[in-house]
């Protein structure tokens, strides 16, 4: 162990290498070379390229956003036309229903009026028949009365005087 340490002591460097001024020129020279090389590489190649790529990406992103905006507008327009078509269809359907209703009403009205007319005719006919029947009935009443009166007179032993009976029955029936 002790020999190890003494060997190390022999090979040890003097002081801090950072304060070894003999190496300063070398370090400064190579540092300047390095910095110049990095600067040239960065300004000539790397930075413009990265700036290009970033600008390109920003552009494509904004393009995509614009395209998406466009598509969105189109979608909105399509929805509007769809809504309009729907409203039109609805209005048309309404019109059709309205027309059908009106037609049906008109048909119904004519049918009703026709029926009314027929009924009125029938009533008139009926009334005529009733009138006829009534007048017939009156005639038959007169006949019955005449024959009855004649029969009664005969039964009572009177003379068959049809003229007198007719006169009396008619006057009796009139008032």
């Amino acid at each position: 162990m002790a020999s190890n340490s003494s060997q190390a002591a022999e090979t040890a460097s003097p002081g801090m290498p950072q304060l070894d001024f003999s190496s300063f020129g070398n370090q400064i020279f190579w540092l300047v070379v390095t910095l110049v090389v990095i600067y040239v590489i960065l300004t000539r190649v790397a930075l413009p390229r990265i700036a290009d790529v970033l600008a390109e990406r920003r552009e494509s992103i904004s393009n995509d956003i614009a395209a998406a905006e466009d598509l969105k507008l189109k979608a909105v327009a399509a929805e509007e036309t769809y809504d309009k078509a729907l409203a039109d269809a609805r209005a048309e359907a309404g019109n059709i229903v309205e027309g059908a209703k009106a037609e049906m009403k008109a048909e119904l009205a004519t049918a009703i009026s026709k029926a009314d007319a027929e009924i009125a005719e029938k009533i008139v006919e009926g009334e005529k028949i009733i009138q006829e029947i009534r007048s017939n009935a009156l005639e038959s009443v007169e006949e019955v009365a005449k024959s009855t009166a004649t029969a009664i007179i005969e039964a009572l032993g009177g003379k068959d005087d049809s003229k007198f009976v007719d006169k009396a029955v008619s006057s009796e029936m009139k008032g």
Binding site: S23, F29, L31, I50
Partner: peptide, 29 residues
């Protein structure tokens, strides 16, 4: 002796750092 133009370990490791910069910013992109 270390003269100002001598190629030393300083040169080597500075060259490595240049290579790292090139690798990252030039080759990588």
């Amino acid at each position: 002796p270390v003269m100002w133009y001598t190629v030393t370990n300083v040169t080597l490791w500075m060259a490595f750092s240049v290579a790292a910069v090139v690798l990252l910013l030039v080759v990588g992109t």
